[in-house]
């Protein structure tokens, strides 16, 4: 198991009960799509997996319990790609941004640079190494954000609305990139075709609970979750 969660509960400071007893598990290398309405708890749940939020219940990631003593190790094992890449890219150049994670983990400078270049090569962004992140297109920013995560060599990737801001070629290119990555992946998305191109497993969140887990097509039909149909 890469993730094992038992009876996870979480309340925001304003009293909103965001998670009401989540049980969830997934295997290494598996890809699962998270569906559900806005505010149903998908992102809140994902933020618990690398300890950014701390609720009640038991969480184990890659064999490690998510607690204060393990946070740094957990964050190396769980790569979180945010919906808005602009929030994720904060260093002055692409290369420095991608190297941020390894250097923060205490890796030597040369090794950090090697890992960053390797991750940029895998995402097809090595030629943009010296550029400032804010000069990139939305698709390029997303690739750099993913490279920044891959440089840390995580075992689990969490992608929050990965296709937001991407044009169709950008979405196809992201799909090709993600399908080539061996890590376990959680896709938090409303984009059913994109999710279906990467996995046939899905979880449906409803009001802070997991309402269903299983085959993606069956879940989409059961909850009438197809956005639009084309004639």
């Amino acid at each position: 198991m890469i993730v094992e969660v038992k009876d996870l509960r979480f309340k925001y400071d304003d009293g909103t009960e965001a998670l009401r007893g989540i049980d969830f598990s997934m295997d290494r290398g598996e890809t699962i799509a998270f569906f559900g309405a806005n505010g149903s708890g998908k992102t809140t749940f994902a933020l618990h997996l690398n300890g950014l939020l701390r609720g009640e219940g038991k969480i184990q990631v890659a064999g490690l319990a998510v607690n204060d003593g393990n946070l740094q190790k957990i964050r190396q094992k769980v790569g979180l790609v945010l919906q808005d890449s602009d929030n994720q890219l904060f260093m002055p150049t692409v290369l420095e941004d991608v190297a941020f994670g390894p250097l923060a983990a205490g890796v030597e400078v040369r090794e950090g640079e090697r890992r960053a270049k390797d991750a940029l090569e895998r995402t097809g962004m090595l030629h943009k190494s010296g550029k400032a992140p804010y000069h990139l297109s939305a698709g390029e920013k997303k690739r750099v954000a993913i490279a920044g995560i891959l440089a840390g060599d995580p075992e689990l990737l969490i992608l929050d609305e990965p296709t937001t801001f991407l044009d169709p070629p950008g979405q196809r290119s992201l799909q090709t990139l993600l399908s080539a990555l061996p890590q376990a992946k959680i896709l938090i998305t409303h984009d059913i075709p994109f999710a279906a191109s990467l996995t046939n497993q899905a979880v449906f969140f409803h009001q802070g609970r997991i309402a269903a887990k299983g085959n993606l097509r069956e879940i989409v039909e059961r909850f009438d979750w197809q956005a639009l149909t084309t004639s």
Binding site: F90, A104, G112, I149, G152
Partner: peptide
């Protein structure tokens, strides 16, 4: 959101440079 992204990538108070 930016701070959250930094923490998620292991930020613990120091930003190290690639070319000291």
């Amino acid at each position: 959101a930016i701070h959250q992204a930094m923490v998620a990538r292991g930020f613990e108070g120091t930003i190290r440079s690639l070319s000291p």
